[in-house]
């Protein structure tokens, strides 16, 4: 089955839950990743991103819930499905005793379709030589080799678990270029997790934010930034205590100012702020990183959702 005729999302996750012992690592995750998009998966370390990805890849068994990858149940992977999905595991693992060329020949043996042009283009992009021993490569070069091995079978769906981890800025740029190159074809989908929000801002169409096993946002980057906003209230005297607002994730006071970071600020919230009788209220755009840190930082204890399931067009 070529999958070209496949409709529906690239990945559909319904109520996916995972316990390790008594600890809930992923909690009731619902998520749909449309075909043809570059999807950024964000969250702090330990948020449950890798466990989610490993469940999707059929490596970890879900405790509850289901997920479909290209329309197939994620607990029943077939060799045909493996051919259509490229998975780059966290950490850029390679067989150190093989040369770059040997790694390619070894991996190619598992696939019916293997595009050597792509393999060579990617290793060239990362300045790798075929005779180099994989064990002697730098982190960035290893990432390049792993990426070449993942891209050569021309997968419809790429799942990259923290591909930029440990890469220098030049290697990171090469990685982003490769990701954009892959999605030139409209039906190619990428799911990648990352902590580098400026990279995510460059390439991602949509993001999901996980925090302590729970999905806390699922929207476009612009939506996220538009909905996590900061308000600077200026006072003649010392500002009062921050108001109790449902969407307040972060507050900060100085002598004359109070900065409130609010999610989904409503007219009611604005009325409460005006009610504090500040001299002026200024609404500030936050960068993606600022918005993210406010949103999942320690003060963001309250759980609410930036949920926008209208993701599918």
């Amino acid at each position: 089955m070529s999958g070209k005729g496949n409709e529906g999302p690239a990945i559909a996750i319904r109520g996916l839950t995972k316990y390790y012992g008594g600890q809930k690592v992923v909690d009731q995750l619902h998520l749909e990743i449309p075909r043809g998009c570059i999807f950024g998966f964000l969250g702090r370390n330990g948020a449950g991103k890798t466990t989610t990805i490993r469940m999707l890849m059929g490596i970890v068994e879900p405790t509850r819930g289901t997920a479909e990858v290209l329309g197939h149940d994620c607990t029943r992977w077939t060799p045909e499905l493996r051919e259509r999905v490229g998975y780059l595991a966290e950490g850029h693992h390679v067989y150190g005793w093989m040369s770059v060329a040997e790694c390619g020949r070894f991996q190619a043996g598992f696939y019916r379709r293997w595009n050597w042009d792509i393999f060579h283009a990617v290793i060239g992009h990362f300045n790798l030589k075929e005779k180099q021993r994989a064990g002697g490569l730098s982190r960035g070069q290893r990432a390049g080799l792993c990426l070449a091995l993942t891209l050569a079978p021309e997968p419809e769906l790429l799942v990259l678990d923290d591909p930029a981890l440990g890469l220098d800025p030049v290697a990171r740029r090469s990685l982003l270029e490769a990701m954009l190159y892959v999605t030139r074809q409209d039906d190619r989908t990428i799911l990648f997790s990352s902590h580098l929000l400026s990279d995510v801002e460059r390439v991602a169409d949509r993001i999901a934010v996980m925090d302590r096993g729970v999905l806390r946002a699922y929207c476009t980057i612009d939506d996220f930034r538009a909905r996590v906003r900061q308000f600077i209230l200026r006072f003649k005297e010392r500002p009062p205590a921050p108001p109790e607002l449902p969407g307040l994730v972060h507050s900060f006071r100085t002598d004359r100012e109070m900065a409130l970071t609010i999610v989904n600020a409503s007219d009611a919230d604005r009325a409460v702020m005006s009610g504090l009788r500040p001299e002026a209220i200024e609404e500030v755009d936050l960068g993606l990183e600022e918005a993210f840190v406010s949103y999942v930082g320690e003060r963001g204890e309250k759980s609410f959702f930036l949920h926008d399931l209208g993701g599918k067009k």
């Binding site: 801002e201 612009d222 930034r225």
Partner: peptide, 10 residues
């Protein structure tokens, strides 16, 4: 310049 206060499209 990604990572700034101004979205890339702007």
């Amino acid at each position: 310049t990604p990572g700034g206060d101004t979205p890339i499209y702007r």
